[in-house]
């Protein structure tokens, strides 16, 4: 099934973060580009990050290579959105 409707990279990142952290839409809509992620959110462990990458690939129909993933990308919400936007534009 690949009938994915259009979803902006930012909306996809927000939706996946909401699912991983178990937040409601209001809480996750308060995330800004500066919101700290990895290290600041204990739920975001390596397994959650693995699930996040696979889920983003699926929702945005992109492919993420291992060597593209670094710690910096998970430092802030803004960095993660920027990465997703960059991949979606490829």
């Amino acid at each position: 099934m690949s009938e994915n409707l259009d979803l902006t990279p930012e909306a996809a990142v927000r939706a996946v973060m909401q699912d991983i952290l178990g937040l409601d839409a209001d809480q996750v809509s308060a995330f800004t580009a500066d919101t700290e992620l990895f290290g600041a959110l204990p739920e975001l462990d390596s397994m959650a990050v693995a699930g996040l990458l696979t889920e983003l690939e699926d929702r945005l129909d992109i492919m993420i290579e291992d060597d593209e993933v670094d710690g910096e990308m998970f430092e802030t919400f803004g960095n993660l959105v920027a990465f997703a936007e960059m991949k979606a534009a490829e």
Binding site: M1, V16, Q18, D19, A48, E55
Partner: peptide, 21 residues
């Protein structure tokens, strides 16, 4: 409901399989 995939029906709730615990 949060999914963009085709479905016969959409259900409210969260993606528990992504949850850390």
């Amino acid at each position: 409901e949060s999914s963009t995939r085709a479905a016969d029906t959409k259900l409210p709730g969260s993606a528990l399989w992504l949850r850390a615990e």
